[in-house]
Nucleic acid binder design. Structure first.
Length: 429
RNA sequence: GUCCCCAUCGUCUAGCCUGGUCUAGGACACGGGCCUUUCGAGCCUGUAACGCCGGUUCAAAUCCGGCUGGGGACGCCA
C-alpha cells in the first residue's frame, strides 16, 4: 500500500512551501488509496515550541488536509539509538566525543526521481555523517530514514531543497538494510523576486493568511496552481476534483514565484461564489476570531450586508471597512468623498427627502423611480444627485448600487442621513 | 569553492516524452473600450515569451551538446 508522509518541524509556523508539500502528498495518497502520515520532527529541543506545533496542526486541519497517522520523533529516541547501535556493531559507524558517526564509501549514487528522472551524484562533501549527536538526539538524516523505513513510507515527496540530502539517506538505507522508497522532489516556491521566500511575502504563516481573511479553499486552490496544472485551462477547482486529476509525474520541475495578486484573485472568486448564508456564517466566524464588534450582528443583518457587498470583497478582512455604514449609527464622510459633496444642493436634497417620505414600499425599484422622477422635476441629471446621496448614506464615494443600498438601509436611516448632509451644508454657510 | 536541479509572455502555466496541426494557447497583473449612478463585477480588446550558440533533421519551443542565467545543498538545524 502506498504511504506518504509530511514531516514538519515545529520550530516555526507552517508556511506556504510546507503547506504545498503537504498538499501534494495528500493528493497523491488520496488519489491512489494510500495513507498520509504526519510526522512531527521535534528532535531539536531548543527550537521546538508547542505553539508552533499547534499552529501547524490547526493549519493543516483548516486546509482540510487530514492525516491517517501521526508520530512524534521526540518519542522515538530509543529506536534511533538502537539502530545506531546496530551500525556500530556492523562496524559501519564509530563513536567519538559521545556522538556517533556513520562512515561510508562513496562512488556514485543514482536517484530515480519520480518528477526529475535520473539524478546522479558523483561526489559527496564528507566521508562521514553524524547520526547521533553528543546530546543523544538523532540527526535529521538519520531519524528520517529510520522512520520512513519503519513507518512503511514507500514514497517520499518533499521539497527540492532535500534533493541533495537524498544520496546520504540512500547510503543509510543500504547500511541499515532497508528497502528504498521512491523519491519525488517538488520544485520550490520562490519569492516574487526569485530566490527564497522572504518574510515580506509568502513566508508568512498559513495562520496569517487566515487572519488576513483568505479562505482555505482559495489558498489550497492557489497552491495547486504552483507547479501543477489541471489541464484544459482549468484554474479554479476544488481539492476533490484536483485530487482526481493529480499525477505526480505531471508536477513541474521549475520553481515558481508566489504571486499575491493571483492569490487575491482566486480568493475573490471563492468569496463571490458563496451564497449569502454561507458567506454570512463565514464572516461571522471570521469577525469573531478577530474580535471585531460587527461579529455581534445577527445573521439576517450579516446576510443583507453580504448580499450587498460580496462581489467586491477580495478577502473577508475587506468586509468591515466596506460595511461600516450598515452597522454604525452615524457615517463620517471620508476625506476623498468631500469632493463629491462640495456643491451644495440643499433644496434639492430636501425635495428628495420629501419624495422618499411618500414611499410606503421602500424597495429598490420603487426608490429608483421616485429618485429619477425627483431628479427630473428638479431638472437635474440623476447622477448629479446620486453622488452626494451616496456620500450622505455611506460616507464613501465608491460602493454598491445606490438604490439597493437605500433599500437595505431603510427609509428611516436614509432620510436621517440625508438630513444630516443638509445640516452639514448649512453649518458651512 | 564543490555537488545538484532548472530554463515558454513581468508572474503562474499549456505545448516538449510520441519533432510538422505553434503566425505558441489560457490565467493573473497591466493598457484601451463597452456597460453603468461611483467603484467593483461582467463583456470585448491590446501589449507581452520559446535565454544564447551550435548540432541532428526536409522540418525543432519540442531531440543532442555547449554557454549563459536562475535556484538549491554542503550544520552535532530540519
Amino acid at each position: 500500500m502506498l504511504k506518504v508522509r509530511f514531516a514538519p518541524s515545529p520550530t516555526g509556523y507552517l508556511h506556504v512551501g510546507g503547506a504545498r508539500t503537504a498538499l501534494f502528498n495528500w493528493m497523491h495518497a488520496r488519489k491512489n488509496g494510500g495513507k498520509f502520515i504526519l510526522r512531527i520532527e521535534d528532535t531539536d529541543k531548543n527550537r521546538t515550541k508547542p505553539e508552533y506545533l499547534n499552529e501547524i496542526l490547526e493549519s493543516l486541519r483548516w486546509l482540510k488536509l487530514d492525516w491517517d497517522e501521526i508520530y512524534y520523533q521526540s518519542q522515538r529516541f530509543d529506536i534511533y539509538r538502537e539502530y545506531a547501535q546496530k551500525l556500530l556493531e556492523k562496524g559501519l559507524a564509530y563513536q567519538k566525543d559521545e556522538a556517533i558517526f556513520f562512515k561510508y564509501q562513496f562512488n556514485q549514487i543514482k536517484i530515480n526521481d519520480l518528477i526529475r528522472g535520473e539524478v546522479t551524484f558523483s561526489e559527496l562533501p564528507k566521508p562521514e555523517e553524524v547520526i547521533i549527536k553528543r546530546d543523544g538526539s538523532p540527526t535529521y538524516n538519520f531519524s528520517c530514514c529510520i522512520d520512513d523505513a519503519l513507518m512503511g513510507v514507500n514514497c517520499v515527496i518533499r521539497g527540492e531543497d532535500h534533493l541533495s540530502n537524498t544520496p546520504k539517506q540512500i547510503l543509510l538505507y543500504q547500511a541499515l538494510g532497508f528497502d528504498l522508497p521512491e523519491f519525488a522532489h517538488i520544485p520550490l516556491i520562490l519569492s516574487p523576486e526569485g530566490g527564497r521566500l522572504s518574510k515580506r511575502y509568502g513566508a508568512t504563516a498559513i495562520s496569517d493568511y487566515k487572519k488576513e481573511g483568505y479562505l482555505p479553499e482559495a489558498l489550497v486552490n492557489y497552491f495547486l496552481l504552483l507547479g501543477w496544472s489541471a489541464g484544459d485551462n482549468k484554474e479554479i477547482l476544488a481539492l476533490n476534483q484536483a485530487k482526481e486529476l493529480f499525477k505526480l509525474k505531471d508536477v513541474n520541475k521549475t520553481g515558481s514565484a508566489f504571486s499575491l495578486d493571483k492569490l487575491k484573485w482566486v480568493n475573490s472568486r471563492y468569496i463571490r461564489e458563496k451564497d449569502s448564508s454561507q458567506l454570512a456564517s463565514l464572516l461571522k466566524d471570521y469577525l469573531e476570531s478577530e474580535g471585531h464588534p460587527y461579529a455581534r450582528a445577527n445573521e439576517d443583518e450579516l446576510k443583507t450586508a453580504v448580499n450587498l457587498l460580496s462581489g467586491r470583497l477580495v478577502t473577508l478582512a475587506d468586509f468591515s471597512s466596506q460595511a461600516d455604514f450598515l452597522f454604525e449609527e452615524n457615517v463620517n464622510y471620508s476625506s476623498d468623498s468631500l469632493e463629491a459633496i462640495k456643491d451644495k444642493l440643499v433644496d434639492e436634497i430636501k425635495e428628495l427627502i420629501k419624495a422618499l417620505g411618500t414611499i410606503d414600499n421602500f424597495q429598490e425599484n420603487v426608490i429608483e423611480s421616485v429618485f429619477r422622477e425627483t431628479a427630473a422635476k428638479l431638472n437635474l441629471k440623476p447622477k448629479v444627485l446620486v453622488h452626494p446621496v451616496r456620500v450622505a448614506l455611506t460616507g464613501k464615494r465608491k460602493g454598491p448600487g445606490l438604490f439597493e443600498t437605500m433599500a437595505v438601509l431603510g427609509k428611516d436611516k436614509v432620510t436621517k442621513r440625508l438630513a444630516k448632509l443638509v445640516e452639514y451644508w448649512e453649518s458651512r454657510e
